[in-house]
């Protein structure tokens, strides 16, 4: 089955990296097929940014996301742009600190994960994307937790693996608790 996931925010938040970690986990550590595509403005930092992943057991023909089942969103601008494009019955995971204004949406489940706050508690705001990723894995169950951890290890800068894995676990726990409540 083809699953489409969109990560969105602004440049510098690690949005592209989130997509790459997810896709690597799927195709290198889970034996599935995966493609990551991206789009961003001419500026490499600060502008609007999205990173999309298609995961499938079969060969992937069209590599771009058309109507995602899952939106992971970390800026108000990106939320405004993409919130209504989520498939019926789909999931939005957002950081309420970054997305203070929500729309009335029907037929999607919304999960609020204070990833920036979690990251700040760990002392490094930069790992907010990884905390978000943890929550995404817990909430959606699209990927095996261990596969994603392996993928994080090879995709983050040397020396930051521990911090990133910690952020991932915190986000994962937060996501698990959201599911229970």
């Amino acid at each position: 089955m083809r699953i489409e996931i969109r990560f969105a925010g602004f440049g510098g938040q690690g949005i592209i990296k989130s997509g790459i970690i997810t896709a690597t986990a799927a195709c290198i550590y889970s034996g599935k097929n995966a493609v990551q595509t991206q789009s961003y403005g001419p500026e490499s930092r600060g502008g609007a940014c999205k990173s999309e992943v298609v995961i499938s057991e079969e060969e992937i023909d069209f590599p771009k996301v058309i109507e995602p089942e899952i939106l992971v969103v970390m800026s108000q601008h990106a939320y405004n742009e993409y919130a209504e494009n989520v498939k019926t019955g789909g999931i939005i995971i957002l950081d309420p600190e970054m997305v203070p204004h929500e729309k009335e949406l029907k037929n999607v489940r919304v999960f609020k994960v204070p990833a920036t706050k979690i990251a700040e508690e760990l002392g490094r705001k930069i790992v907010a994307n990884i905390a978000m990723l943890g929550a995404f894995v817990a909430i959606t169950g699209v990927l095996d937790k261990e596969a994603v951890k392996e993928s994080i290890k090879v995709n983050v800068p040397k020396g930051t693996e521990e911090l990133n894995l910690k952020a991932f676990e915190r986000g994962y726990e937060y996501g698990k608790n959201l599911l229970k409540s």
């Binding site: 690597t24 195709c27 290198i28 097929n33 995966a34 493609v35 595509t37 991206q38 590599p63």
Partner: peptide, 9 residues
């Protein structure tokens, strides 16, 4: 650009 920036196995 898509093929250049896209990630695949």
């Amino acid at each position: 650009e898509v093929v250049g920036h896209m990630w695949e196995k």
